[in-house]
């Protein structure tokens, strides 16, 4: 995108024309939905209600951080803690596509509930190009159902508006920078959250294990990048596998979970290369995770590019 200012002005003009009544925006505090919120807020101001849902699958401290951020942007924020509902809906579910569809459906359920409260007839989403591309359609194979596409019911009660639909992440970042948003450089985080990083059943307990591991991976890689030991990857996180292995701790046998460290370089998420994280950084991640998380026995590093892998494991 060459003319960022032009895109912003045209979008705002179009949104002003398109949205008549009250609208709600599904906002996670990530780059896409927060940028969409800022655009729509400029266009229709108080008629926009920003809904942020704690699904129970957010990262460490994220719920508080995002609420603060969205309030700081002057948005009319409605916070919903739906974590119990989400955990319940995913009980016993292990198939990745079912997980994603259930989460997408749960989001819509929550948004429709919130919309009714404020009498909104428009739902705004921060959907970007890879979301609908990978969700399949006509000739295109389903790679993974993105939460904002795959969970949509056939007959939506609300009208859907997606101002960033044709953009890729690098372009959304340009828009975010233009609007002066502090989230412009945040790493991407999947809409279904940690649920697609806990392979197998995403219970509250297993999610807690992964949340800690994820925080360690983020912290160590960010510190390494600050020291100049490596470039900051496009995305870096932990995945919890449904695979147990044997270990030994203090002369005692242990038998527990496996964490995968994933870090990739990309521009738009459509292709990605495994990042060359320096070995001492990986080693330190391994030591910290196994020493502080008794459930985890083993930590491994993923060296797969996209394709043939995808960035997230599910």
């Amino acid at each position: 995108m060459k003319d960022v200012a032009g895109f912003v002005n045209q979008s705002i003009e179009k949104l002003m024309k398109d949205i008549e009544g009250t609208a709600i925006i599904a906002c996670s505090g990530g780059v896409d939905s927060t940028t969409a919120a800022a655009l729509v807020n400029t266009a229709i101001g108080e008629r926009l209600v920003t809904v942020f849902v704690d699904t129970g699958y957010l990262r460490k401290g994220e719920s508080e951080r995002v609420q603060e951020l969205l309030k700081g942007m002057g948005l009319n924020l409605h916070f919903v803690d739906a974590s119990d509902e989400f955990y319940k809906a995913l009980r016993g579910v292990t198939d990745p596509e079912r997980k994603r569809k259930i989460i997408g459906g749960m989001f819509i359920k929550v948004f429709e509930r919130e919309a009714e409260k404020v009498d909104a007839d428009t739902l705004i989403q921060g959907t970007i190009a890879p979301d609908w591309i990978e969700s399949g359609g006509q000739l295109r194979d389903v790679i993974k159902s993105h939460h904002n596409v795959g969970g949509l019911p056939e007959e939506m009660k609300m009208r859907l508006v997606e101002p960033l639909r044709d953009l890729y992440k690098d372009e959304v970042r340009k828009v975010a920078r233009h609007l002066g948003l502090e989230i412009a450089e945040r790493q991407p985080f999947p809409g279904p959250g940690l649920a697609v990083r806990v392979l197998g059943e995403a219970t509250r307990e297993r999610t807690t294990v992964l949340r800690e591991a994820c925080a360690i991976v983020e912290e160590e890689i960010e510190q390494a990048a600050e020291r100049g030991d490596c470039e900051i990857p496009w995305q870096y996180f932990a995945v919890l596998l449904p695979v147990k292995s044997v270990g030994v701790r203090g002369d005692v046998r242990s038998y527990g979970e496996t964490i995968v460290v994933r870090a990739v370089g990309s521009l738009d998420g459509m292709t990605a290369s495994a990042s060359p994280i320096p070995h001492p950084v990986l080693e330190r991640i391994g030591i910290r995770i196994t020493n502080t998380t008794p459930e985890v026995v083993r930590v491994v590093y993923d060296v797969t590019h996209k394709p043939p892998g995808t960035i997230e494991w599910e």
Binding site: K2, I133, E134, R140, D141, I143, D166
Partner: peptide, 19 residues
Amino acid sequence: VDNGGQWTHREWRMLRDLG
């Protein structure tokens, strides 16, 4: 011409980027 590729839209973007 879309044959259902993951990167069809990238081709469109590439052309758009080049004006």
